[in-house]
């Protein structure tokens, strides 16, 4: 069977111009990426902002040429067969403002179907059907400029699905949406793939829950490199021998000086400050290590407000792989 998406040692380097020509720098956005996505899969790319997710999508959608390596979509080479790929794909990005505000929702969607050669009658029929599915049928004749962010994103989602692409690329599709709208969009995306085993979606996200809930397999990506690829369950299972604790404590002033990292059996610790308390997320070798943690806290006069043992999440997998939470990684990259 031909892979829906395949990359072989794919790399992309951006040249960043400084004020002077001699100041040109290079930014490695993708480095030696190898992926195989089967038809029928909902495949997630999970990583912080700046990890290289959008660059990968741009290459796969023929918007950007790779610097090294190869990439294939529906069996076609992105560098040589761009037009054949374009007949089979579509893309939706989170927070996009595509289309024209003066046109109605129906008119905007119709316009985009014309660029794919869908006959008008069929296009109008599909617009109606899809808008009903996403609960936007009553706004069909509203100007798109009058839609809220959530409704506009639903319109964008419909635009992507309108053309019945063989491979659909969704770049942070729920970015900026409220919880309810995100849930509806996720439900729709999952249903679309499940409905036909030949459909494939590559979805990028930096929301762990989204990747966990939606994706058949996930690639964790950071600084242009793929660190792990597996099902969300298998990725989390890799941490199940360890014990994961979330401990809320009295505010830690100068937490860096408290040597939690040096404790035997402490694999990873992430410290965040909340309003009036501190949170320590810990991956311990086993439950036995917890006693050493509590002893140290007692010695340092740190009061435990809440202690919770929890199941591993994809965030923990990321922390285990990178050594920092996704949020910390974004801050470091900036």
């Amino acid at each position: 069977m031909i892979n829906a998406i395949q990359t072989e040692n794919l790399g992309r380097i951006y040249k960043i111009r400084g004020n002077k020509k001699s100041e040109e720098k290079q930014l490695i956005a993708l480095n030696d990426v190898n992926l195989e996505v089967q038809p029928g899969e909902l495949f997630g790319l999970l990583g912080p902002n700046g990890a290289g997710k959008t660059t990968l999508i741009k290459i796969l959608t023929t918007l950007l040429a790779p610097t090294t390596g190869k990439a294939f979509v529906a069996g076609f080479d992105v560098s040589r067969d761009a037009n054949k790929i374009r007949q089979r794909i579509n893309m939706v990005s989170g927070g996009e403002t595509s289309g024209y505000g003066l046109l109605t929702v129906r008119e905007n969607l119709w316009m985009f179907t014309q660029f794919y050669g869908i006959p008008s009658k069929l296009a109008n029929q599909r617009i109606k059907e899809l808008l009903e599915i996403v609960g936007l049928a009553d706004r069909m004749n509203y100007k798109s400029s009058d839609l809220s962010t959530g409704l506009r994103q639903k319109m964008n989602i419909v635009r992507g699905f309108m053309t019945d692409p063989q491979v659909l690329f969704l770049d942070e599709p729920t970015l900026g949406l409220d919880v309810g709208a995100s849930r509806e969009v996720r439900h729709f995306i999952r249903g679309w793939v499940d409905h036909d085993p030949t459909r494939t979606i590559l979805l990028t996200t930096h929301y762990m829950v989204e990747a966990d809930e939606l994706c058949d397999r996930v690639a964790i990506i950071n600084k242009g490199r793929v660190l792990a690829i597996d099902t969300p369950e298998n990725l989390k299972r890799s941490l199940q021998r360890e014990a994961i604790y979330r401990i809320e404590v009295s505010p830690l002033n100068g937490a860096g000086s408290i040597p939690f990292e040096n404790l035997s059996g402490m694999h990873k610790i992430v410290h965040t400050e909340q309003d009036g308390f501190s949170v320590l997320e810990m991956i311990l070798e086993s439950d036995d290590t917890l006693s050493s943690v509590i002893n140290l806290m007692t010695k340092e006069n740190i009061h435990i407000l809440n202690l919770q043992k929890r199941e591993p999440t994809l965030e923990d997998v990321f922390v285990q792989l990178v050594g920092r939470s996704m949020e910390e990684e974004e801050q470091v990259s900036e």
């Binding site: 038809p39 869908i118 053309t163």
Partner: peptide, 14 residues
Amino acid sequence: MNAVIQTKIKKNTG
């Protein structure tokens, strides 16, 4: 490598 999957809705070309 050739694609084996065709899209299912009628689309004009040319």
